[in-house]
């Protein structure tokens, strides 16, 4: 089965990211396809490369990057939600005249159309949120 995943909550604050990661790993292990993971609301904070949690905690952001690297999962951050919350890739930072970018490897920033497209293309959409 082909899944699109929507993550609506930020890492650490809420369990959605952990649950989504666990679901995706389990689905891939069973031979399912993850068409896209879309990050919305505070979920966009899953895509920062500047998180430094305590050493004995999990590093959620890099778990996403690893997932993208090992399985080619498409990780898309909503641009409108990202702009509100200060998530930037290099191109967007340049366009906005900002002096830094903070997006983690494997993520890309794009529009809400990518969510709807994912919902249309996938057999099932699973929402992880509050």
């Amino acid at each position: 089965m082909k899944f699109t995943i929507l993550v609506n909550e930020g890492p650490y604050q809420h369990q959605s990211s952990d649950s989504a990661l666990q679901f995706i790993r389990a689905a891939l292990e069973k031979g399912h396809e993850i068409f896209r993971v879309f990050f919305y609301h505070d979920g966009v904070n899953n895509g920062t490369r500047l998180a430094v949690p305590p050493k004995d905690d999990r590093l959620i952001q890099s778990e996403w990057s690893t997932l993208a690297e090992e399985h080619g999962v498409d990780l898309v951050i909503c641009i409108a939600a990202a702009q509100r919350r200060g998530l930037m890739d290099a191109d967007e930072a340049k366009r906005q005249g900002l002096d830094a970018n903070n997006i983690a490897p494997g993520f890309r920033i794009s529009g809400l159309g990518q969510l709807i497209d994912g919902n249309i293309e996938a057999d099932r959409t699973i929402v992880f949120g509050d």
Binding site: A81, G111, L112, G113, L115, I116, D117, N119
Partner: peptide
């Protein structure tokens, strides 16, 4: 919370996709 406002933004996009 911001959920309602950002939900409306998605509704408008889905409508544009003629769903």
């Amino acid at each position: 919370t911001v959920y309602a406002l950002e939900s409306l933004e998605v509704v408008l996009i889905a409508a544009a996709f003629e769903q």
